[in-house]
Amino acid sequence: MSDSGDSDVSWIFYKDRPEWSDLTPVPENDGPKPVVVIAHSEKFEDVYDYFRAILQNNEKSERALQLTKDAVELNPANYTVWQYRRDLLQALGTDLKSELDYVEAVIKQSPKNYQVWHHRRVLVEWLKDSSLELELTRDALLQDPKNYHAWQHRQWAIKTFGLFDKEMEFVDNLISEDVRNNSAWNQRYFVMNNHHGWTDMNVQKEICYTLEKIKFVKNNESAWNYLRGVLLHDKKGISGNTIVTSFCEELYLNKCRSPYLLAFLIDICEEAIKKEETNSLYNAQRALELCQSLATKYDKIRSKYWNFIGEKFRKYQKSENI
């Protein structure tokens, strides 16, 4: 981990640099006292005193651009520094390609920071060049496959510049590596929804893909949620697709009691009731029993939820009996 503290021996304070002697540093204007009594680390204080000075003078110079780098290194989350840096880039007509390299390096150090990713996006917009974005986000996602910022940036680049071509392959690889990666499942939906479209054939293909993954790990919230998402586009609903229902029944017969399977069966029952298509498998009685087994055995921490849902089926049962 890089140390931005005071251990850097070669560091020269701005106050000791002759080329900065024309500028009077501006200390932090303290706010309410007990909330703000500060004895800053010396380096931090020095850099930010000079940053405030250039800000106050609205100085647009190469040395100011260099200073913002030091300020960013000490605190990449300081949004004012980034904003001023962009003002400088525009005023000085700096080569934006080298700025892309620079922000990539900062992203590598602080991948979970709103400001750096936003800076990246502004640069890509200015350059109208997205050729490096898929690789940049891929690298960030290799480090942390659930990095929200990286996913947002990737989706933005894909949508804005039409980079859908190889995205499904990327998603497949991530899901193969970690079948529970909810971000990857979300991206799968994003690609289907915005690119491939939900034709009948695509719906069937996605169902088969998801069932394969569920077969592999049954207790996977993300895959079950995705299955529901796909079935939103199936005209026959979640109870009408025999591939899905027979898959679920087979799991159940093979003693799988994953809460997600049981919850799914409950939903099939509910849809059958609403469509007035109940049968010996899908009816209020079975749903009620499933709720009870979840509440008392398979998902005890959510027993209150399952009891509540169970009540709903008790009411259905009563109206069935009338």
């Binding site: 503290g5 932090e28 706010g31 309410p32 007990p34 909330v35 703000v36 009594v37 500060i38 004895a39 800053h40 680390s41 931090f44 204080e45 930010y48 000490l74 605190n75 989350a77 300081n78 949004y79 004012t80």
Partner: peptide, 26 residues
């Protein structure tokens, strides 16, 4: 009540950029 008084100084000045929210939380 004492946050910022005996808080590690470096960390405290690191949070200048979100001070307003800090006041709201406290």
């Amino acid at each position: 009540a004492s946050y910022g008084l005996n808080k590690d100084d470096y960390e405290y000045c690191m949070t200048e950029y979100l001070r307003m929210s800090g006041i709201y939380w406290s």
